[in-house]
Design a protein around this nucleic acid. Structure first.
Lengths: 343, 343
DNA sequence: CTGAAAGCGCTTACAG
DNA sequence: CTGAAAGCGCTTACAG
């Protein structure tokens, strides 16, 4: 592997000049710069990242921590890939690399992140799957490393975050169902401690009140965030004596399992039970009857996350903002047939 | 952030001894080692990765390059997350970190990988979505960086790879359909230049011959590797005057779209058209009628990949093998109802 | 068993 | 505009 020394020797100039030429410093003769650039391309030289990071005290890399546990495995589908596409695009404009850091099931997310942070593997971090009480937040604050969370936490959030507009979804879904005459509306939320479950549940209860509908705690159904979870939601609904006439889901994949369970019972979504799904994805588009759900751009979400993160990085003073970005990402209703019925 | 200097000063010993104690060198007084370990835990010290990498000439990180393009976005679902789980587990045992390196749609995979490699961002690389003629292979060979491919290429493969046993799948599927009396069997393959399409097509043609069945080029249907692709496969099949009685799919997600298209035409899989899917996933399990498909463990595949990679790394002489690992990953038939019919 | 020193590959004040 | 030199935070022969 060719280093800066070899390149300098090849050009018969000093390594300092080579470095300055490559880094676009203004105080370099344009003729010299041209020769350096050409030779670098020819010899396939790029600065060794360890040497550069050590000297600069920064890695030019941003970490995106994801959890590859069983739950996310079955529900996330293409969510992260879409977001990653947006992130890489926005970060690349500022010469930042994105590295995805998968925390395995067997390791505590807090400990994993701590290792990453103290070793200074990356300059900034994006965390996802935020818990209601997420110990990673104080860890990152204490370490003083710029970060943004994809998802709110339960605390007083004095940090940057971007989250889906669960409130908007809950209100739009409930208002729509109420307009069709539904009075008994259930909601399916994840049974883990992930914060979005709490957020969505609260928004749902709030939406019921706003529409003058009674709240029945039995109508909040906890389930795994997966197809199978959707299936068990179906089980629960079918077993209720006072069965709801509508259900709102908070994970795309749940719809698949619920459709299946209903079908086994001879019931049809939109005729026997109104179903409102969550995120419109390739799967939702192929369900029959078509699922009423909510649309968003994963790419734009990724871009928004990147912008929010850049605004926390002192290394980018022109983008830096004193106030942390805290943004709810809007989701737009897509009308399907799964809640066509009126009651 | 506390460095080794601070830690040494705090303990009133030299940084050399601190380093040796932390790195488990035998030539350290056990009492000293204990004090160092305790102080490191107390002060939250871990060696700066840039400093360590520069000195050692190795990063202790393995890169897993994935492509976050539109196609993979809609087909990969949980495939990578599962594999990543297996990879992290196996690599962690050798103190290697896994970093996922997403190549964005807009960048050429070859150029992206070259940047990663020459900057020495990682010690070894796993590439995926191999093309028939994949320029990344010669790049990695020339750079002399240990690597393994998830997927074969079209060339004479003198490098390590692990791939799914497409041959086994094609033969099992065709033999099973032939036994049920099918003589006109179609296959759906991806329309991109990804190598698995070629591999599967060849295996399919081979399997037809072995079962004494004629080969009709019209029965090879190219489609996008997505739900929508499955839908267009349905379109193609329905439009054929000489319609096949069975179809074998090479992507899990295709089944969803095909089911949908058949349903729209009033046809039922397993009654009007025999369908054999590819990988059993959470989605396949929820299709109705149940999809006949093939089962594998993503976790084991990840572990196998890691082992194959470690065997190429001179840094692990006890695992090192002169012969590159080249392994077809077996897939086991899971009987469903989607090919129940006999003809 | 421990300390002092060299050096990994860069970038960047500092002289000239 | 360029070169020589210092130094980022580690690890590791080398002395003692």
């Amino acid at each position: 592997m060719v280093g800066i020394r070899r390149l300098a020797q090849h050009l018969d100039i000093s390594i300092g000049t080579v470095s300055r030429a490559l880094n676009g410093r203004p105080d370099v003769n344009e003729e010299t710069r041209k020769r350096v650039l050409e030779a670098a391309a020819e010899l396939g030289y790029a600065p060794n990242q360890a040497g550069r990071s050590l000297r600069r005290g920064a890695t030019s890399a941003v970490g995106f921590m994801i959890e590859s546990n069983d739950e996310s495995e079955s529900n996330s589908d293409n969510f992260f890939l879409g977001v990653i596409g947006g992130l890489t695009g926005a970060l690349a404009q500022h010469n930042l690399d994105l590295v995805v850091l998968p925390c395995s099931t067997s390791e505590d997310p807090h400990d994993y992140l701590q290792r990453i942070v103290v070793r200074r593997l990356v300059d900034a971090v994006i965390i996802s799957a935020t818990q209601r009480n997420d110990r990673r937040i104080p860890l990152l604050k204490k370490a003083g490393i710029p970060f943004i969370a994809l998802g709110r936490t339960g605390g007083a959030d004095q940090h940057a975050w971007v989250d889906l507009d669960f409130e908007g979804v809950a209100h739009k879904a409930v208002a729509r169902l109420a307009a069709k005459g539904h009075k008994q509306i259930a909601v399916a939320v994840p049974d883990s401690d992930i914060n979005l479950g709490h957020v969505f549940r609260n928004a749902f209860v709030d939406a019921l009140a706003q529409n003058g509908l009674p709240f029945d705690p039995d109508f909040i159904i906890c389930a795994k965030s997966s197809e199978h979870g959707g299936y068990t939601v179906g089980d629960t609904l079918l077993a209720m004596k006072n069965r709801p006439t509508a259900v709102v889901l908070v994970y795309e994949m749940m719809a698949i399992g619920l459709y299946r369970r209903l079908s086994e019972a001879g019931l049809v979504p939109g005729r026997d039970l109104a179903v409102v799904g969550f995120r419109e994805g390739p799967l939702a588009r192929f369900l029959s009857p078509a699922l009423t759900c909510f649309r968003m751009s994963l790419l734009d979400l990724g871009t928004g996350l990147a912008e929010g993160l850049l605004a926390t990085m002192p290394a980018f003073p022109d983008l830096y903002r004193a106030e942390p970005v805290q943004k709810l990402w809007p989701m737009e209703l897509v009308e399907g047939e799964s809640d066509a019925m009126e009651v």
